[in-house]
């Protein structure tokens, strides 16, 4: 019986793979069915994940095991229930309190996190001696790193019109940004093609058995 369900699983996988790929021809009912199943399963998966991996270990387990030591967790529980009241139009305003807490905490955390990791740490990493390398390629690269970062940041300064020397510097910044976008595009294309190869391997290997997995 286990073998039957294993084979059924492979056939279901192949069926849904073809249903999604059918969109390459045009939008059709097979694609729409597969798409809606994906949406439903995805929402269901995250619902169950949230219950088992966020709410049970952080809320239900501590309260049920020792409520005396964890009574304070009743506050976020109450705020969480207030959040769910957003579903009812008349009590929608109640959800503003937990949302305010989430937004306030997120703003505080993001303020500190991005100040450290995205501004101070990145600036510190850029302030290097570009001529300290052992070979010309490294020295050229480090010069590009320093010039590219500074000119790129200048490009994002929109309070002054991009003209004259400032405009030229911003233009150099655009060139570095374009190289960066090109490299990112190359990597994205490769990642998608590797997923496509994975699907073809599944169809030709696991499903049809033409190639060895």
């Amino acid at each position: 019986m286990e073998h039957f369900f294993s084979v059924l699983g492979i056939w279901l996988g192949a069926l849904f793979t073809f249903a999604i790929f059918s969109f390459l021809y045009k939008d059709n009912p097979f694609y729409k069915v597969a798409e809606q199943i994906f949406v439903g399963l995805s929402a269901g998966y995250w619902f169950v994940y949230t219950i088992f991996f966020i709410l049970i270990p952080n809320l239900f387990d501590p309260i049920s095991q020792d409520i005396g030591a964890n009574w304070i967790k009743l506050f976020p529980a109450a705020l969480g229930i207030m959040m769910l009241m957003r579903l009812i139009p008349k009590t929608e305003w109640v959800s503003r309190f937990p949302i305010a807490l989430i937004i306030g905490t997120t703003s505080g955390i993001f303020f500190l996190r991005y100040l450290k990791s995205d501004v101070i740490n990145q600036l510190t990493a850029t302030m290097i001696n570009p001529f300290a390398g052992s070979d010309p390629v490294t020295i050229i690269g480090q010069l590009m790193l320093v010039i590219g970062t500074i000119t790129g940041v200048i490009y994002f300064y929109f309070s002054k019109k991009h003209e004259g020397a400032f405009g030229v510097t911003a233009k150099i910044g655009i060139y570095f940004l374009m190289i960066s976008f090109g490299a990112a595009f190359g990597y994205t294309a490769m990642a998608r093609i590797s997923l496509l190869i994975g699907r073809l391997q599944f169809l030709l290997g696991d499903w049809l058995g033409i190639i060895s997995p």
Binding site: T50, L55, K73, M83, P98, I102
Partner: peptide
């Protein structure tokens, strides 16, 4: 608290 409310 943030983690719990975010779960909700």
């Amino acid at each position: 608290w943030y983690l719990i409310i975010a779960g909700f």
